[in-house]
Design a protein around this nucleic acid. Structure first.
Length: 552
RNA sequence: GCGCCAGUAGCUCAGCUGGAUAGAGCAACGGACUUCUAAUCCGUAGGCCGGGGGUUCGAAUCCCUCCUGGCGCACCA
């Protein structure tokens, strides 16, 4: 907000300067940012340096001209300094910062970004785990990441649809059904080996036990895998959905790969590609000429067995997403799925759609650390830790916060020792504690008869301590930060911001008293500051799906 | 061999569109509770931003190259 106001002033001066021939119009790509170090002002611009680079003039001289022009604009700016190689630093008036508080308090839960994406429809696909077993830690990261991204996009005005894509057919599911059948037979007294590459997890036994107690041994002589497959899928989806519910995640739609076959989309995609000469037969299989799109080699889309590979439905699925009329498609995949991305993009392009409308967020893996050592996980041996087990151990708030602490590109080391610590070093509690503390102060104030009074009568000009102004500056940056985090699909920035804001508050709290019977006016102003802080913390925590407790 | 991601303090990681003196948490060390919640704070220490070249007013950030780690490179998903 404030940056925007300053930018308008600066743009006006820049335009005037262009007219006078002081700097060229091409220098318009200058930026305005917050200096890294204290004492360099509230904002800073590189305008003079960018311009000087174009016309071979001394940047400090141009900075001087800029300052002269800006000196007439005094409603925001208190002081202007020229520093370093030619930065122009702005020191804004305290009133500017104090002025953000009424805005925050009045908007309350609505305080945040403007709806820049207004009306645009975005489809976010995430989790998309096939029903072959419980959600693992990696899925957990993806689920929370995807959910946070959705929340952010909604916050900036996008119309968000959350979709879970799954496949309940094919080899994987047959193996799953075979595994269940084996366990079922074993439990009903018929010795039976797991099929090759079978699912070894304990959860298969659980499903088998339920099945046995329900239908008895009536399936003992059945060679048909269908009832086993159906049973396994139902049970596993129930489990997955239970986990997602615990995490506070809801999907708008579950898209079954099978509908792509039923509705003829698979055949149609092949026909369309074939019509363009992008498909050929070799070794009994059907190949897609991905080399036409700059890729290294062609890929099989229909196996010699007649079964499509995952690529074909993936392409058809993405085409359906386009056809359903979204403005933006976001896919969230684990790093192990990277190989599919170029193939799908090639397919989309071949079918006449714009791959630039798809953004793929690839996230790296999660390693669990316990007692300073890595917890070894293997899906095959079923030694993985499930999201459910993690939630049992650390709770939803901690799990969500930890999953969001790293950018998607980084591998995430989940430190269970740190996560389970109920106090001190745990960053989740650190932020939550700030909110609880603020709540407690507000309550305390009422009990002591030092109520904040009317906002319109509060003397916010009394908030002149460096720590207070710093808090106000940070609070003012919140909407812009959320905005940027949303369009960049980077929720970790919000997590870092919240830690920063909490730290600034804790520090302030230890240095200054908010409630004071002697200085009533100051108390009132500070209580409004506390109120505003509480709003920003609450909104930020809510946006990442972490609770903002009133007491701890 | 090829592709993607990463390499920043002892450990885990931020660092947005290239900006000024490189940031946080944890761990370590030394302090602060008769006071609004000490799940807190203050202070100290800790760095060839993997190496080497380049681009420019200016590089952790961009380009090239090499090294290390992770993940891919199926007629699995």
């Amino acid at each position: 907000m404030i940056r925007k106001r300053l930018k308008e002033v600066l743009d006006r001066c820049f335009a005037a300067g262009v007219k006078e021939g002081i700097w060229p119009a091409e220098a318009a790509d200058y930026t305005i940012e917050k200096p890294k170090h204290e004492g360099l002002g509230d904002f800073s611009t590189n305008l003079a340096m960018v311009a000087a680079g174009r016309v071979r003039k001394n940047p400090r001289e141009l900075a001087g001209r800029l300052r002269e022009m800006l000196n007439k604009e005094c409603d925001l700016i208190d002081k202007i300094e020229i520093a370093g190689p030619g930065f122009v630093n702005f020191f804004l008036k305290n009133e500017v910062w104090q002025g953000v508080l009424p805005d925050i308090c009045r908007r309350d839960k609505d305080y945040g970004p403007e709806a820049a994406g207004a009306g645009k429809k975005v489809l976010v696909e995430f989790v998309s785990a096939n029903p072959t077993g419980p959600l693992s830690i990696g899925h957990g990261r993806q689920a929370v990441l995807g959910d946070a991204i959705c929340r952010l996009l909604s916050a900036v005005g996008f119309e968000v649809s959350r979709e879970y894509y799954y496949n309940d057919a094919g080899r994987q599911m047959r193996v799953l059904a075979g595994s269940l059948r084996a366990r079922y037979l074993e439990l009903s007294g018929v010795p039976c080996e797991l099929p090759e590459d079978g699912y070894q997890g304990e959860y298969i036994y659980d499903i088998a036990r339920d099945l046995l107690s329900e239908v008895g041994d009536s399936l003992r002589n059945s060679d048909d895998l269908a009832p086993f497959q159906k049973r396994a899928e139902q049970a596993i989806f129930k489990d997955i959905n239970g986990t997602l519910e615990r995490l506070g995640i809801k999907f708008d739609n579950y898209y079954n790969e099978h509908t792509l076959y039923d509705d003829g989309h698979i055949d149609d995609v092949v026909a369309k590609l074939r019509a363009q000469g992008l498909v050929y037969e070799k070794d009994g299989a059907v190949w897609f000429k991905t080399t036409n799109f700059g890729l290294e080699k062609d890929r099989v889309i229909i196996k010699s067995s007649g079964e499509p590979t995952y690529r074909l439905p993936d392409i058809a699925y993405h085409r359906e997403k386009f056809r359903r009329g979204y403005d933006w498609l976001v896919d969230i995949f684990g790093a192990d799925h990277i190989a599919t991305v170029p193939d799908v993009m090639a397919g989309i392009k071949a079918l006449g759609y714009d791959p630039d409308m798809v953004t793929v967020v690839l996230h790296q893996f999660v390693t669990l650390m316990r007692d300073g050592k890595q917890v070894k996980m293997s899906t095959r041996k079923a030694t993985f830790v499930t999201v459910d087990e993690l939630l049992d151990e650390v709770g939803v708030d901690v799990a969500r916060f930890f999953f969001l602490m790293r950018k998607a590109d980084s591998q995430l080391e989940f430190d269970l020792d740190l996560a389970t610590r109920q106090s001190q070093e745990n960053p989740v509690y650190y932020v939550q504690y700030a909110h609880a503390r603020l709540t407690s102060i507000m309550k305390q104030a009422v009990e002591n008869g030092v109520a904040a009074g009317e906002l319109s009568e509060a003397r916010l000009g009394l908030l002149v301590q460096p720590e207070e102004l710093e808090l106000l500056r940070t609070m003012a940056a919140y909407p812009g930060l959320v905005q940027k985090a949303a369009v960049d699909l980077a929720p970790h920035r919000l997590v870092f911001y919240l830690q920063e804001l909490a730290a600034a508050f804790h520090s302030y709290y230890n240095k200054h008293r908010i409630i004071s019977a002697e200085e009533v006016e100051l108390s009132r102003a500070r209580l409004w500051l506390a109120h505003g802080l509480r709003i920003v913390l609450y909104n930020g925590l809510t946006l990442i799906g972490v609770r903002a407790p009133e007491a701890m």
